[in-house]
Write a protein that binds this DNA or RNA. Structure first.
Lengths: 342, 342
DNA sequence: CTGAAAGCGCTTACAG
DNA sequence: CTGAAAGCGCTTACAG
């Protein structure tokens, strides 16, 4: 690689015949610089091809211009449904507009998520952090709260009233509405398959579902609630088990499209008709839900907007010390074949 | 936010009763430190909760520990097929293992991709850059080459023999093989729908396709080659147009699953049987190709491995000044219903 | 094996 | 409106 030979602020200062302070003020567009000198300095910067060194500036200002995003590790959690990439897209777009870069980190074999976060913060590599998911008893959230480091959360915190900036859908309401909708379709025995019970979003959806069951005077039965993970296998497995229940459900709500897809495959292979025998509704509105052999009803959570707002909240937290803000992003139920009136 | 009050190397030095130089040497695990002092310093670091400031270290060493990744802007290009997220996953994993963080950048409304890159480099925010796609006449590649900044490319450069580290599949061969395979299935009139002609990968696939057509003594006809973009609409549109050709094709190769999916939808809606009337083969092996009503043959390019290797190459370039290295990642054709023997 | 000193490239009170 | 000086928190020849 060619020798760096970086042009520095001092070079510009010499050439322009002013002090480094003045050049610095021109860079930061500070007030109280005469138009004449400003002009001259700008010209010299241009002629020398000067560009300010972001690292040096970071050190002096104690501010990096970076936002840390911690990626989940398991690929299945990330890329098999569109949530993560879509949210990331919103994050990157919004960060760019606010003048921040995104530092993407992840846990390595050697360290867990919390340690990744600590490294980012203690190494002063970022000004703030976005957490892309909210777990129950989330130690990352606890840590960030405890040191009052600026962060925002996609999802809801597991504790209330703790000043955490977060952006979420009303997942309780979404599940409630979905369940009610199924009862309107005449379904009387609605099961649920929930993926990853460690996530707050799962918890909320289960609660919304239960609430709707109660209010509809349907009998809720723990056996109708299946807990698994974000993969097709969970769908295959519980798709089968549903059929073994004493009173076979006539509908099932699944908390993720990939799981729902697996369940539908297994059910159809066993000659169960969807939606006649069992209706299916799900979350995330992925390509699968739209293009499955039997397209299925699914809730669009607007992941892009969640990402967008998470950055806006975070920037407010970093720059204006804002806390305790909550933003609700609307969801949308896309009704399809799998819950058609029969 | 609580006052930073960062514990510095100097604090540790004072407490341990040594010079800052010594502490620094302990941090970097430099040789020639007596075990005794090393022990003592380590103990003090621990007691004070000291953690080295990455920014200060960057400035002193002129090295950031960051790798820049420039995201494409158009969402369709990114997230509707699994290539980008999968490659990113490989990049993040590999970077973490090599001790680098990923700085994700993108063009804003104000600046194009080249300017984003320039900002990263001239601001000294990254030690190297990964380009996630290779365009024909790619100005980012030209710029990076011209200043000899460490970078690696996913895809092949549009010029040869210029020392660019890159990792790619043999896309020429993949398209060639796919075409030959269709002729073996008895197809004699094979069309192609290519997405985004500005990409090198598209160019190579077109070339492979043409070569196979020639070698099979089939007549190549410019009219059978359709050029569009990475979306279903392209599939819809050319799926229709194919049927209007003087001699109707009995097979079509598409360079992306989403486009292929669109084409299949339109063809089936017009009562064309797949594969009996028209066979379809495509690229990227996405969820769609597997789970489409008519599952279709698709080439898996191993995006995860492409990302992994891109980082390995880049790290070699950064740390050992390695240039001119090319890595080939194997592809795999997944044969499905859409090219079944009839 | 260890320390004093200079330096990485900026910013920012303070003073005028 | 502008400058001199100190400082951000580290590293690294140089010297011993």
């Amino acid at each position: 690689m060619i020798k760096k030979n970086q042009v520095t602020l001092n070079d510009v200062a010499k050439k322009a015949g002013v002090s480094p302070s003045t050049v610095s003020r021109v860079i930061s567009n500070s007030s109280r610089i005469s138009d004449a000198t400003k002009e001259r300095v700008l010209k010299c910067m241009d002629e020398l091809g000067y560009y300010p060194n972001a690292i040096a500036r970071s050190l002096a200002k104690n501010k990096t211009g970076n936002i840390g995003v911690i990626m989940p590790t398991r690929s299945e959690d990330i890329f098999l449904n569109p949530f993560f990439p879509e949210a990331l897209r919103g994050i990157v777009r919004s960060a760019a507009n606010a003048g921040y870069d995104i530092l993407l980190s992840t846990n390595t074999e050697l360290e867990n998520e919390l340690n990744s976060i600590k490294n980012l913060i203690r190494g002063s590599k970022v000004d703030g952090i976005v957490l892309m998911s909210s777990k129950i008893d989330d130690e990352s959230i606890d840590y960030l709260s405890s040191i009052d480091f600026p962060f925002s959360l996609i999802g809801s915190p597991y504790k209330v009233d703790n000043g955490i900036n977060h952006v979420d859908n009303d997942n309780f309401m979404a599940a409630y509405e979905l369940t009610m909708y199924l009862t309107l379709m005449g379904k009387k025995n609605i099961a649920m398959i929930a993926a990853d019970p460690s996530l707050m979003v799962t918890k909320k959806r289960i609660e919304g579902y239960k609430k709707a069951i109660e209010e509809s005077n349907l009998n809720f039965n723990e056996k109708q609630l299946f807990i698994g993970s974000f993969d097709e296998e969970t769908g295959y497995k519980y798709g089968r088990e549903i059929l073994e229940l004493d009173s076979r459900p006539d509908a099932v709500i699944v908390t993720d499209d990939l799981v729902a897809f697996g369940a539908i495959q297994v059910l159809e292979s066993l000659n169960i008709r969807i939606p006649e025998d069992i209706a299916v509704a799900s979350f995330n509105n992925s390509v699968l839900s739209r293009y499955s052999q039997t397209p299925f009803t699914s809730v669009d959570v607007n992941a892009y907007d969640l990402g967008l707002e998470a950055i806006d909240l975070l920037v407010e937290a970093i720059e204006n010390d804002v806390r305790n803000r909550k933003v609700l992003i609307p969801y949308k139920i896309h009704k399809r074949e799998s819950t058609r009136i029969v």
